[in-house]
Amino acid sequence: MQIFVKTLTGKTITLEVEPSDTIENVKAKIQDKEGIPPDQQRLIFNGKQLEDGRTLSDYNIQKDSTLHLVLR
């Protein structure tokens, strides 16, 4: 499925993911596309910070959902 990740600069990254993917996996995909190390990434969905060990389906993230990427 496709999800979107919006950065603070207003750029939107499109990712191909599975609901069973962990947040860690998603961060690795963002690193592949953008070169941002996962330990600098914080992903936010519906105002909640997403934890590495959880999956997209844990957070009820579905296709065409938009996550927000904050760098630390």
Rank of each mutant, 00 (worst) to 15 (best):
F4T: 03
F4D: 10
F4A: 05
V5H: 00
K6Y: 06
L8S: 13
L8G: 05
G10E: 12
G10H: 09
G10P: 04
K11E: 02
K11T: 15
T12Q: 05
I13P: 00
T14L: 09
T14S: 09
L15D: 00
E16I: 07
E16A: 08
V17S: 07
V17F: 04
V17K: 00
E18K: 15
P19Q: 13
P19S: 04
P19R: 12
S20T: 12
S20R: 15
T22V: 13
T22K: 15
I23Q: 05
I23R: 01
E24S: 11
N25G: 06
N25A: 07
N25P: 02
N25I: 15
V26I: 13
V26H: 00
V26S: 04
K27T: 03
A28H: 11
A28Y: 14
I30H: 00
Q31D: 13
D32L: 11
K33E: 09
K33G: 05
K33T: 03
I36G: 09
P37M: 08
P37Q: 06
P37I: 14
P38I: 13
P38S: 14
D39N: 02
Q40W: 04
Q40T: 12
Q41T: 02
Q41A: 15
Q41Y: 04
L43G: 00
F45P: 00
F45M: 15
N46Y: 07
G47A: 11
K48V: 06
K48S: 08
Q49H: 12
L50P: 01
E51M: 15
E51Y: 10
D52A: 08
R54D: 13
T55H: 12
L56S: 01
L56R: 00
L56A: 15
S57K: 12
D58F: 12
D58Q: 12
Y59N: 04
N60D: 06
N60M: 13
I61V: 15
I61T: 02
Q62W: 12
Q62S: 08
K63T: 03
D64G: 10
D64Q: 04
S65Q: 14
S65N: 05
T66F: 13
T66Q: 07
L67I: 03
H68A: 15
L71E: 06
L71D: 13
